[in-house]
């Protein structure tokens, strides 16, 4: 249980004294897609945000336990926060391009990390837009406002913006919940393409999506990891009755 791109070990998180994650131990293997599923408010987004330390922005959050990236504790103090966030990119629930041009959106990350050279930036923008399949569509509109794009393309752009800082892990926080089915499929296709090079962790409340698009699935309930298994196994023969109840849409057993 120790090899893996990201290893979460005995992680506890409390928000203003109220526990939100309890003793979670979970391995995210390299170049695979892991889905985190569970009902609203179960802590799946919170878990995701401990990996790139976005929970740090919220006052009153207390964390115990370890999150290892390539064996290095992200809360250990040896890893620079900005470096961590570059290596662990994130796509949010609602498409949220900056009110800037398409180009400046993708170039934002590289610029923040000190890349000034125009031709290099142009190369990065082209490479990343190609990777998300937007280049042919947008090559003549790089100077147009990103907010003019349809929502699905905005989310693809957000993915390109993450790729621009050459992350190793990509966190997707319900990336399709604001999108129509076609755009959703597009993002799922992209995930399959990107998994060749990146470790992908996706939080979703859409179980078909988890079943379709992931290699491994973790089921979280009330801040606890109930079950973690290869997706096929978890969806066809879950071991825990709570998992079975959740994936078949039955009422969950009353919590103890």
């Amino acid at each position: 249980m120790v090899n893996g791109k990201v290893v979460v070990s005995q992680l506890n998180l409390a928000y203003r004294g109220r526990p939100a994650l309890r003793d979670i131990t979970l391995v995210f293997p390299e170049k695979a897609i892991t889905a985190i599923i569970g009902p609203s408010g179960c802590g799946k987004s919170t878990l995701l945000r401990t990996i790139n330390r976005m929970n740090d922005l919220i006052p009153g959050v207390e964390i115990r336990g370890q999150v290892l990236l390539d064996g290095e504790d992200v809360y250990g103090g040896t890893i620079l926060l900005e470096e961590l966030r570059r290596r662990v990119g994130m796509v949010f629930q609602r498409p949220n391009p900056f009110p800037l041009s398409v180009f400046d959106n993708v170039a934002y990350g590289p610029r923040v990390h000190g890349i000034r050279d125009r031709t290099l930036l142009a190369d990065i923008v082209e490479r990343c837009l190609r990777a998300v399949g937007l280049w042919d569509n947008l090559r003549d509109r790089l100077r147009r406002p990103a907010l003019e794009l349809p929502l699905g393309q905005q989310q693809q752009l957000c993915l390109a913006r993450v790729l621009a800082v050459e992350p190793e892990v990509i966190l997707l926080d319900e990336p399709c919940s604001a999108l129509d089915p076609i755009s959703t499929l597009r993002i799922e296709q992209l995930m399959q393409e990107l998994k060749e090079r990146y470790t992908i962790i996706i939080v979703t409340h859409n179980m078909q999506q988890a079943a379709r698009a992931s290699d491994l699935t973790a089921f979280i309930l009330d801040g606890e990891l109930v079950e973690w298994a290869p997706t096929e196994i978890l969806f066809t023969s879950p071991r825990d009755p709570r998992t079975e109840a959740y994936i078949t849409g039955r009422r969950l057993p009353v919590p103890h």
Partner: peptide
């Protein structure tokens, strides 16, 4: 959040 998540200070 996006800015921070990309490693912005």
């Amino acid at each position: 959040e996006v800015s921070y998540s990309l490693g912005g200070s």
